[in-house]
Design a protein around this nucleic acid. Structure first.
Lengths: 125, 125
DNA sequence: ATGCTGTTATAATATGAATATAACAATCCC
DNA sequence: GGGATTGTTATATTCATATTATAACAGCAT
């Protein structure tokens, strides 16, 4: 999978990495059981420090997207906690919808945009 | 309007402030032309530093939610840049929907949750 | 045995968040 | 006019986080 880091972004490198990997999982570019590149390997190929990649992996582990195996490294393994996921989703959506509403984006437009994203990412379950 | 700050949150104080004010605008608790409390006043009532409130107001100004008047202070004044707002919305939704998809939350459930939020916040335009 | 893996420790640097004082000019109220 | 409050700006300090840099260790593969 192609991972692109924007060094000019104000978003932390490890968060950009985390987000891209999560999007990679959602679009089935990474599948349950797949191994992520080793921390050193990925750090080399991107041109960042090993610990930055390690932090991204650690966060992904804490958030229930991967498990770490001594031999296979970070392996995609989703731990589904629906209650927590729904609570987080609601919290995030509240802010986003407030911003959208202020900017004259209607409820219908949001629904439409979501459908577009689901179509773009045909892989979404 | 009641502003509640969570000092245990990992979210920056000025961002919590910004988000709550945006939600306040979206729910019509603040209306176009209304003045926000002075930076010193709000800082006092919350128990934080003046500059932290000032930073929140500065961000709100940059993002087009308020304009600052010498006399009235920070005044609600929405500057609608739909293109930019839609672009930002899409970027944020992509990550959120990816996370949701991984956690077995369906597209329909997201639509439903959005409707719930719109109903809860009856004030949303 | 060599080389790779994840993990851990430590240190240095850089950046941002938050607080603390302080001052200035414009405005408002009495 | 005079005092209080406004937003703004400047400077400094403290603290947490992000990022990089070395380094070492134990487990595993070929």
């Amino acid at each position: 999978m192609i991972i692109e880091i924007d060094f000019n972004s104000d978003e932390a490198l490890y968060l950009q990495l985390r987000n891209q990997i999560i999007m990679g999982i959602a679009t089935a570019q990474f599948q349950e059981g797949d191994s992520l590149p080793s921390v050193r390997q990925l750090a080399d190929s991107i041109g960042i420090n090993m610990h930055t990649v390690n932090k991204a992996y650690t966060v992904l582990k804490q958030e229930g997207y991967v498990k770490v195996d001594r031999r296979k490294g970070a392996v995609i393994a989703i731990d589904v906690d629906r209650m927590q996921a729904l609570a987080e989703l609601k919290r995030e959506l509240q802010v986003i919808l407030a911003k959208s509403s202020c900017k004259n984006i209607s409820c219908e437009e949001v629904h439409q945009l979501i459908n577009e994203i689901y179509e773009d990412y045909g892989g979404l379950k």
